[in-house]
């Protein structure tokens, strides 16, 4: 039926799933190479790496030797190739500031950011989708209008302001929730989790809401708009004419048809949630990768900055790929496996 709707799957109909995934993988590699180029350019154009490493009293000859040792005199493409090969093996060099391998720092910080991002994403979905459905089904109710008004605030207020307001209300005035940090964490292998202690969970609440609020309002508005559109379609009318219950129509037939664009947006937003965790992590002093990145900028810790850039890009590309594959799961029209078609 291919009705023109806001966001559609990018895959052309009729392309087998495997060919589609291979094509997307190749595109992803291209994107990653471009980002790596930008990350690599940081080393060359933001200050002099040798200056950043050595003290003031190092002689010019020593500097030149170091430069030669580090391969900084090699032609640009050779240096870039070396960077890519190392990056592909998760080797981003040594942090100038911490004097430790960057990948170790990132691995140490990753659980905090990932837990925060997924909690924020989960909050956005679990609250946003039902609110979207509710406002679509009760279009003229006062509660719907209240939701929409509040969502406007969520969309317009910047994240750091929301974070500070929440701290003011819940930490300073009410004293219910901690204003900073991850609370108590438990180490499981290399993964440190705050999800297993009460203290850690409580500490997660405010940052997760802060980070997820924008996505929540976005998802709510998206679900509402898609739902309203689907409810106008012929197959919903026909489902009514078949006497199906309102519940079956709204949640079985209508909701599933709104899922394709919702999956797209939610997936893409998860990438930006991870990327924009920087601000929330700064406000709440959350010991994640974002905070690491902000501190790296302050100290011109270029290996950390480059690694973070590449890592975030990698997460975006990965999530996009997963989203594309999810289309095949939701929409049978994309699952063309020969035969059957056209009787």
């Amino acid at each position: 039926m291919g009705a023109p709707r806001g966001i559609r799957s990018p895959c052309s109909r009729g392309e087998p799933m495997v060919a589609f995934i291979v094509r997307r993988l190749l595109q992803s590699v291209l994107v990653m190479l471009t980002v790596a180029l930008v990350g690599f350019a940081l080393f060359t154009y933001v200050g002099d790496p040798v200056n950043n490493m050595v003290g003031q009293d190092t002689s010019l000859a020593d500097r030149e030797r170091l430069r030669e040792e580090l391969g900084l005199n090699d032609p640009f493409p050779v240096q870039f190739a070396r960077f890519v090969v190392n990056a592909a093996q998760a080797d981003f060099g040594i942090s100038y500031r911490h004097g430790r391998p960057v990948e170790d720092l990132l691995i140490e910080r990753a659980p905090a950011t990932l837990e925060l991002s997924f909690a924020a994403g989960l909050f956005a979905l679990v609250v946003g989708v039902p609110m979207g459905i509710y406002t679509a089904l009760n279009r003229h109710g006062w509660l719907s209008k209240a939701f929409l008004t509040v969502s406007l605030i969520g969309i317009s207020l910047p994240t750091f302001l929301i974070g500070i307001l929440l701290i003011l209300v819940f930490s300073v005035w009410l004293g219910w929730l901690p204003s900073f940090g991850r609370g108590e964490t438990v180490q499981i292998g290399w993964w440190s989790t705050g999800l297993l202690t009460r203290d850690g969970l409580v500490a997660l609440i405010l940052p997760a809401i802060t980070l997820g609020l924008f996505q929540m309002t976005l998802i709510m508005r998206l679900v509402r708009a898609e739902m309203l559109e689907v409810l106008r379609t012929d197959y919903i009318k026909f489902a009514r004419a078949r006497g199906l219950s309102a519940r079956a129509i709204n949640f079985g037939h209508a909701l599933k048809n709104t899922l394709v664009p919702v999956i797209t947006i939610t997936g893409l937003q998860l990438g930006s949630v991870i990327a924009f965790a920087i601000i929330t992590e700064t406000v709440f002093q959350w010991p994640g990768m974002g905070l690491l990145f902000i501190q790296a900028i302050e100290f011109v810790d270029i290996p950390v900055m480059a690694a973070y850039l590449v890592l975030v890009a990698f997460l975006f590309v990965l999530i996009n790929l997963i989203v594309d594959i999810l289309y095949f799961v939701v929409d049978p029209r994309l699952r063309v496996q020969g035969g059957g078609a056209g009787l």
């Binding site: 039926m1 009705a3 379609t233 012929d234 197959y235 009318k237 026909f238 489902a239 009514r240 004419a241 078949r242 006497g243 199906l244 219950s245 309102a246 037939h253 599933k256 048809n257 939701v330 929409d331 049978p332 029209r333």
Partner: peptide, 25 residues
């Protein structure tokens, strides 16, 4: 009325291409 629709009065609409939910068998 819903219990009458489909049970005692069936309906066939104009466009069969859009009358069926594309996501269900």
């Amino acid at each position: 009325l819903r219990r009458i629709r489909g049970r005692r009065i069936g309906a066939v609409f104009q466009d069969p291409l859009t009358s069926l939910n594309p996501l269900y068998t």
